[in-house]
């Protein structure tokens, strides 16, 4: 009995002590490395989220309607205010903000154009990656010169575009927008009913956001920041 216990004790003395400290130091190293990794990842994630102005949890909150997995829009060309034919492909690499209206528009269009101007001011340096285009749904009265003078009074970088009814329907239909001429008063001439939303296309020409009428320039700028590269 005593011998056995002695031998077993001696065995323990010989075998156990040396590996035990090894295991604990290794274990401690693993623990430290994994804690460090997890903490580092968490910290990095929090910093990235905060620097982007996003909430800590969940996807970024948009003010506009987000279009999920959007297909690229079919290309369109219209006459721009510089007199040239310009197509959607000319704006690849920029966020394109499209608004449909007309210069005779009495109420909705100037209000939205002012918000778009505010949006550009709010964006600051990021505004160079954003192109605002107002497409006139009144090609009869809105000549390129008139349209150009109208849009640049809001912001010199704004472009106006217009085209034939066929060209315009090709753009508006796929953006969920309608327009229709109807009689106004003798003072105003005819008026045009049109959807008052603002459409945002990303740098690949995909429709990503739709702002309802009344979205402020600040809210639009905040949403565009999430889409900027």
């Amino acid at each position: 009995m005593t011998k056995m216990t002695d031998s077993s004790e001696s065995e323990f003395d010989l075998v156990e002590p040396p590996p035990a400290p090894k295991k604990t130091t290794q274990g401690r190293l693993y623990v430290l490395i994994s804690i460090g990794l997890v903490l580092g990842l968490l910290l990095g994630w929090v910093l990235v989220r905060l620097s982007q102005g996003r909430p800590l949890f969940g996807p970024p909150e948009f003010h506009g309607l987000v279009i999920q997995s959007p297909p690229p829009l079919s290309n369109f060309s219209l006459t721009a205010t510089n007199g040239e034919e310009m197509s959607l492909l000319d704006f690849r690499g920029k966020l394109v903000v499209l608004y449909f209206g007309y210069t005779f528009c009495p109420d909705v269009c100037p209000a939205t154009m002012v918000e778009l101007k505010r949006m550009m001011e709010e964006l600051g340096r990021d505004a160079q990656d954003v192109q605002v285009i107002m497409i006139s749904v009144d090609p009869e009265r809105d000549t390129p010169e008139k349209l150009g003078a109208y849009v640049t009074q809001f912001n010199p970088s704004f472009i106006g575009m217009t085209g034939t009814e066929d060209d315009l329907l090709g753009v508006t239909t796929q953006l969920g927008i309608f327009y229709q001429k109807h009689e106004g008063t003798p003072a105003t001439g005819y008026l045009i009913d049109h959807t008052a939303t603002v459409s945002v296309l990303d740098e690949d020409g995909r429709l990503r956001l739709v702002f309802p009428f009344g979205t402020t320039g600040e809210d639009m700028a905040a949403d565009l920041r999430h889409l900027l590269p």
Partner: peptide
């Protein structure tokens, strides 16, 4: 699935009144 944005339109109904996607 959210396939894509539905098209916009301005049409006339059986009473001759204007109807749009909105």
């Amino acid at each position: 699935p959210r396939i894509t944005l539905g098209p916009g339109y301005f049409l006339t109904d059986a009473n001759g009144e204007a109807v749009t996607n909105e």
